[in-house]
Each structure stands twice: as structure tokens, then as C-alpha cells.
């Protein structure tokens, strides 16, 4: 399969990429890992006039772990997130989640920024970003702004990104002492995507003092499992309370239906995976 014709430019800086994007926001696509975009081009589901290759932009790369926050350049690959020791020391959920994404070759090319900006309803990172209360730094010729991960995912393949904007950096507040996270998913056997995936974080001091949960795969976009979180805060993280939180969340979620999994099945998985994720932290 061969894509339709397009022009190609390699951007050397974020400013250059933003300027190129600004000229024709509708006809221009950014490409980094290309592991969603290139298959889409080959199937001719997209036919941009111009591809701007952003892989070489140094300011959008790298992982910085500092005292109060963690910054991850949008161009960081899944493989880089998997092997990073400094990141693993503070947030082991990154290695755990990266290991569940696709396969080694795809992890070598695919980027976290690409995954988030593409907003596949079954992608893994969106759930993790929501649970971690990440803020996404978005750049354009008009300046930069930050959007909470919770508000970033709007609909199927649809985000808060406006035409001409670039997701540049992911900022994660350093988790409070005692806050632990986990990610798990029911993996689609062919695609490797999450049929349902749950990222959960809890801090327990006798009772659940803080609860943060992100769910992917279940609905049109990743979302925070606020119903479960609100139920649990202030209560002991007991099996009974976890069961009830998972049940309430499942009942409150409007699930997607497709050929592989019905809405009822996905709702059941929301309950199961939320319960399992929380039990792993109890």
C-alpha cells in the first residue's frame, strides 16, 4: 500500500513547526513516530498536502525529573519511557504501562505525544495521564497554554488541540508521599490496544486520602473515574468498598459498542478492571 502524494518538510525547531502548521492548518499533518499516521496514509484515510516531520526538534524531547514535577517531551518514545531509570524511580507506572503498549518495534518509534494528540479511545497513555493529573503544554504561534489531561480528551480522535497547535510537553506533578499508581488493561488480542484499561492511584492513611483513576477503551474518550474516586475518599480501602466503587463507576459509564465488544461487556470490564487495579493498591 502506498499513500497518496504529499509534500514533506523536516522542522528543526518548534517555532519552525508552528509556522509551517500555521500556513495551512487543515492540510498539514505533523509526523513524529508515524505509527498511527503512516498506516492511516497508506489506507488513504487521510491525505494531507504537507507532512511536517518534527522528530528532530530537541526542545520536545527528553524526560526531566525535578523536585516538584516531571516533564516529558512529547517526542519521547514509548521505549524511552520504558527504560528510563529516573522516571521509574518516581513513577513506576510508566514502565508498567509502556510494557503493555504494542510491541518492541512500535515502541521504538511511537511517541507519547503522538498517542495523546491522536486520542484513540483505546490508547493507554490517556488513562495514565488522567490518573497522574498531568498538564499538557500546547504551543502555537500565539503562545503556549496548559490543559489538564482530564479536559484534553474531547471525543473519538478529538482533543482540545485547536488547528495550528502542537502538543509540546507533558507536565506531571510529583506525586504526594504515599501515593502509588498502577495500570492494567484487557488487551485486544489483535491490535494490542485496551478493550478497557484502568490507571489508578491511591494514598492510604488509614482511609483512602486521595484517589485518582483514569479509564480508557470504555467510552468515546479516556475519562476520570470520578464516581469511584468520590465514593472511596475518606473510606477504608477494603474489598467491599472497592467492589462498590467499581460497581458505581460501571453503572455511571456510557460505554462504546463495536464488533469486538458490546457496551454491556465494556461496562462489565470497567467494573472488573477498576476493582482489580484498586485491589492491587490496597
Amino acid at each position: 500500500m502506498i499513500p497518496a502524494a504529499f509534500d514533506y518538510v523536516r522542522a528543526g525547531s518548534l517555532a519552525e513547526a508552528m509556522n509551517l502548521l500555521q500556513r495551512d492548518p487543515e492540510g498539514t499533518k505533523l509526523v513524529a513516530g508515524g505509527h498511527t499516521l503512516i498506516p492511516t496514509l497508506k489506507l488513504r484515510l487521510a491525505s494531507p498536502a504537507l507532512l511536517v516531520d518534527i522528530r528532530g526538534i530537541a526542545e520536545m524531547k527528553g524526560i526531566q525529573v525535578s523536585e516538584n514535577s516531571i516533564s516529558i517531551g512529547a517526542l519521547t518514545t514509548h521505549a524511552e519511557l520504558l527504560v528510563s531509570e529516573p522516571l521509574h524511580q518516581v513513577l513506576p507506572i510508566f514502565r508498567q504501562a509502556a510494557n503493555l503498549i504494542a510491541d518492541p518495534q512500535v515502541r521504538n518509534r511511537g511517541t507519547i505525544g503522538g498517542s495523546l494528540a491522536n486520542a484513540d479511545p483505546a490508547a493507554d497513555w490517556p488513562a495514565v495521564m488522567i490518573a497522574l493529573k498531568a498538564e499538557l503544554e500546547i504551543a502555537s504561534v500565539n503562545g503556549s497554554r496548559r490543559v489538564a489531561a482530564t479536559d484534553f480528551f474531547v471525543d473519538i480522535f478529538s482533543t482540545a488541540l485547536e488547528p495550528g497547535e502542537v502538543l509540546a510537553t507533558i507536565h506531571i506533578p510529583r506525586p504526594a508521599t504515599g501515593m502509588r499508581f498502577t495500570y492494567r488493561k484487557i488487551r485486544h488480542p489483535a491490535s494490542g490496544y485496551a478493550v478497557v484499561g484502568v490507571a489508578a492511584g491511591v494514598a492510604v492513611t488509614g482511609v483512602a486520602a486521595d484517589v485518582s483513576i483514569g479509564v480508557t477503551g470504555a467510552a468515546s474518550h479516556a475519562f476520570p473515574a470520578d464516581v469511584a474516586a468520590k465514593f472511596l475518599v475518606g473510606k477504608p480501602l477494603s474489598r467491599e468498598n472497592i467492589e462498590e466503587a467499581a460497581r458505581l463507576q460501571s453503572a455511571a459509564t456510557e460505554c462504546l459498542s463495536d464488533r469486538y465488544a458490546s457496551a454491556e461487556y465494556r461496562a462489565s470490564l470497567v467494573r472488573t478492571e477498576t476493582r482489580r487495579a484498586l485491589l492491587a493498591l490496597a
Binding site: Y8, G34, D53, R55, A79, D103
Partner: peptide, 29 residues
């Protein structure tokens, strides 16, 4: 498969195993 699934097209690009059906030649410059 020509759809980034099967890995028959795997080569090493800068030392990393890569599915060459899912990379543009121009990106390998």
C-alpha cells in the same frame, strides 16, 4: 501484512528494530 503487525519487514534503524513498512524513506534521511 503491510500494516505494522507482522514484523517481516523489521530492519535496524540507528540500532533499533523498526518495521520498515511504517517508516517513510524520506524520514530515514
Amino acid at each position: 501484512c503491510d500494516t505494522s503487525q507482522c514484523g517481516a519487514c523489521t530492519v535496524e534503524v540507528d540500532g533499533l528494530a523498526t518495521k520498515s513498512c511504517t517508516v517513510l524513506a524520506v524520514m530515514a534521511d
